[in-house]
């Protein structure tokens, strides 16, 4: 099980636009990725490719989230997703 902790870099949190970018990227990966708030147990982790689950997390700027994946390519996949979470998409 690969695991990474990321800090939300979008000023307004994981709202529609950053969530869309992230969900799309997660959906294109060869492995299934889950996402959960750092404070929540892994059983409560949600599908990272679901934009509605992402928005439902209520993750704000600076919130820590944990990404998890299993299988071949999991490490690379998570590294890629962490980068997306930590960028401030609203400053583009």
């Amino acid at each position: 099980m690969a695991e990474r902790t990321a800090i939300i870099g979008s000023r307004v949190g994981l709202h529609a636009r950053p969530a869309a970018i992230f969900a799309e990227a997660a959906g294109e990966l060869p492995v299934e990725v889950t996402i959960a708030l750092e404070t929540e147990p892994s059983e409560d982790a949600l599908d990272a490719s679901s934009i509605l689950s992402l928005m439902g997390l209520g993750a704000e700027y600076g919130t820590k989230v944990v990404l998890r994946a299993e299988g071949e390519g999991a490490e690379e996949a998570l590294d890629q997703l962490v980068k997306i979470l930590e960028i401030d998409h609203d400053s583009e």
Partner: peptide, 16 residues
């Protein structure tokens, strides 16, 4: 465009 893209993803959302 950003709004439409996000709503398109909501329509095909797996958890929904």
């Amino acid at each position: 465009q950003a709004v439409l893209k996000a709503t398109a993803l909501m329509a095909s959302d797996k958890s929904l």
